[in-house]
């Protein structure tokens, strides 16, 4: 894989992960446990889809096949999506929704925090703007993990269940593949070992405060999103999200 190819892969991972998680949060419109949460969820979703657009625009320039950000978001099939498997997992209850968010936010924050010093100026610029938003997302989801983990007996049980359900998707966040190594060597992306240890430390600290038990260090991990091998959920997400572009392929404006 050349560095240019790796950069495209990496940009799509960032964009697709933002986009798919944003889409999952959109599904919760009108269904949040309180009006304040309605506002906050849509706010986070809005940040994520906005960031996705920035990454897609840069990726589209590099791919340079006449397509644009919309084509990347709405005309690619699942096997071309590069989002982390965690982001496509269903909302289930609010513990799963917030658990998914927290594991992602910790990865997202640490990744962006490294990308602001990227040797690629364009990447650094997009990351700088996104980091402010991700910092707020992480603070918010960390607080929810603590509230639910250390709230009532029921919320503790549900939150622990959520950690157990989602844990197998966390390995992918911190297990590097070729793309990660090439990005790190080029000074574009974060150093994988550093990212992994920071993520573990951050997650353990919050889970401990929340009286929750993390999954085992040697737990089996479900991976594949980074190279386009997804869970069964992604096909349905795209069927809904891409419906109009697919049903009206001749339309050039919306």
């Amino acid at each position: 894989m050349t560095q240019a190819e790796a950069l495209q892969e990496y940009l799509l991972r960032l964009a697709d992960s933002d986009m798919i998680l944003g889409q999952r949060l959109c599904e919760l419109c009108g269904k949040a446990p309180a009006l304040e949460e309605e506002l906050a969820l849509m706010n986070v979703a809005l940040d994520l889809v906005g960031q996705a657009r920035n990454w897609y625009e840069y990726a589209a320039e590099l791919i340079d096949d006449g397509g644009d950000a919309d084509k990347l978001a709405f005309r690619r099939d699942a096997h071309n999506y590069r989002n982390l498997l965690l982001t496509e997992q269903p909302n289930e209850d609010y513990a799963v929704t917030m658990g998914r968010q927290f594991f992602f936010d910790a990865w997202h924050y640490l990744t962006l925090n490294s990308l602001v010093d990227s040797s690629n100026e364009r990447v650094a610029g997009i990351a700088a703007k996104a980091l402010k938003e991700a910092t707020y997302h992480l603070r918010r989801s960390s607080e929810w993990i603590k509230r639910l983990g250390d709230g009532t007996e029921e919320s503790h049980r549900r939150m622990q269940d959520a950690v157990d359900i989602l844990w197998r998707f966390t390995g992918e966040l911190i297990t590097p593949n070729d793309t990660d190594h090439i990005m790190a060597e080029a000074g574009i992306g974060p150093e994988p070992d550093q990212l992994a240890s920071n993520w573990r430390e951050m997650v353990n600290e919050v889970l401990t405060q929340a009286t929750l038990t993390p999954g085992a260090d040697d737990a089996w991990m479900y991976m594949g999103g980074k190279h386009g091998e997804h869970t069964e959920h992604l096909g349905f997400i795209l069927a809904e999200m891409q419906f109009l572009q697919r049903a009206y392929p001749d339309a050039t404006t919306w």
């Binding site: 506002l39 849509m42 906005g50 978001a73 709405f74 109009l244 572009q245 339309a251």
Partner: peptide
């Protein structure tokens, strides 16, 4: 909310999300 998951472009999706957020 019935259409926010099916908005046809990034621009329209972001607009609709912002509108829904305003309403909340």
């Amino acid at each position: 909310g019935n259409w926010v998951t099916r908005a046809p472009t990034l621009k329209r999706k972001l607009q609709l999300m912002a509108k829904i957020q305003d309403e909340a």
